[in-house]
């Protein structure tokens, strides 16, 4: 612990206390670039354009889920159902773009996102209106939605998706893969909403102290309801992207994806207690997870070690962050 604290200490005595502040604020960003620098020294292919595209694409599905999760965790809640919602939305949406007469891909995406929104609103109603603890409500939804996924298509995948739809997972816009564009756009929008709108301030206020937020006139129940709806809709979106990336909507897709999404949020410095955190942090959290997986694959590290290393880095990142926050 004390060893980890050392690098930050000299900052406190420097005249520019702002640098210290910046370091604690952007610790996750610095950690990300340090990790990238280390990997680029260890492996000559890490910094090639192709690999950078791969990392971004591999980060995008978890990243979109994690952005939704950020809203939920900022209010002090948690959404365990996102992996299952991703699967059920993938199956529902993809069923419109399969077979001899595939429908419009945009309608399919709208259906997938809409289904996620609807199921997310169920989560929201359970938590905000009926006061079911978020962990319980979304754990229930995790199971219900996974069951619905198997019911929807008798447990079979939805294959042979139309080429127009597959573009969503495999196409490029100006050289950037479309999943990455969607990830980036979602992140930008979420960042702007949380930072510049009244709604965003209410999300932070609700998570910081729900009672005092309510006393000062914030409709906290509405806010809580809305964050689960957002998380559901984004799970729907990532379900459509995943189906398009793997060319089939698979009923077993997204198993335990909620854990990687929560890990990205937590690595990104958002407090599980609510009220503290940012989308920028989550963005880098998702990137760090993707870079770890990618880097260890590139170096041919056995999957046994890979799991150990990944887990250790998650805990280490949070440890660094909490120890820094504790001192502030």
């Amino acid at each position: 612990m004390s060893g980890l604290d050392l690098p930050a200490k000299p900052d406190r005595f420097r005249p520019g206390a702002a640098i210290g502040q910046a370091l604690s604020r952007y610790g996750i960003v610095i950690a990300f670039f340090a990790l990238c620098a280390a990997l680029s020294l260890l492996n000559p292919y890490f910094l090639t354009p192709l690999n950078i595209i791969n990392v971004l694409r591999q980060a995008s599905i978890n990243g979109i889920l994690a952005i939704g999760q950020t809203f939920v965790i900022l209010t002090g809640g948690i959404d365990l159902s996102v992996g299952s919602l991703l699967a059920v939305c993938g199956i529902l949406g993809a069923s419109l773009v399969t077979g001899a007469n595939p429908g419009n891909p945009l309608v399919a995406v709208a259906l997938g996102v809409g289904a996620g929104l609807g199921l997310g609103m169920v989560n929201g109603a359970l938590v905000a209106r009926l006061r079911v603890p978020p962990f319980v409500a979304t754990l229930g939804m995790l199971s219900v939605a996974r069951g619905l996924t198997f019911i929807a298509n008798d447990g079979m995948p939805v294959p042979r998706l139309s080429p127009g739809f597959l573009t969503l997972g495999q196409g490029f816009i100006a050289g950037v893969p479309i999943p990455v564009v969607l990830f980036g756009a979602t992140a930008l929008l979420a960042w702007a909403v949380l930072r510049f709108t009244t709604y965003g301030r209410y999300v932070y206020a609700t998570g910081g102290n729900e009672r005092s937020a309510r006393t000062s006139g914030v409709g906290t129940r509405k806010i809580i309801f809305s964050v689960y709806a957002i998380s559901g809709a984004l799970a729907g979106l990532s379900g459509m992207v995943l189906a398009a990336r793997t060319t089939s909507a698979l009923p077993q897709a997204g198993l335990s994806y909620e854990l990687d999404a929560i890990a990205a949020v937590v690595i990104g410095g958002t407090s599980l207690a609510g009220g503290v955190g940012s989308v920028v942090g989550t963005l880098f959290g998702a990137l760090i997870i993707a870079v770890i997986n990618n880097g260890l694959d590139l170096m041919g590290v056995s999957s046994y070690y890979q799991q150990v290393i990944k887990g250790a880095i998650i805990v280490l990142a949070v440890l660094l962050d909490t120890s820094r926050r504790g001192r502030d």
Binding site: N43, Y45, T48, Q58, R245, T246, N293, N294, D297, L298
Partner: peptide, 10 residues
């Protein structure tokens, strides 16, 4: 899919 992408790069 991710694993193969990474191997193709490496």
């Amino acid at each position: 899919q991710s694993l193969m992408e990474n191997w193709l790069t490496a």
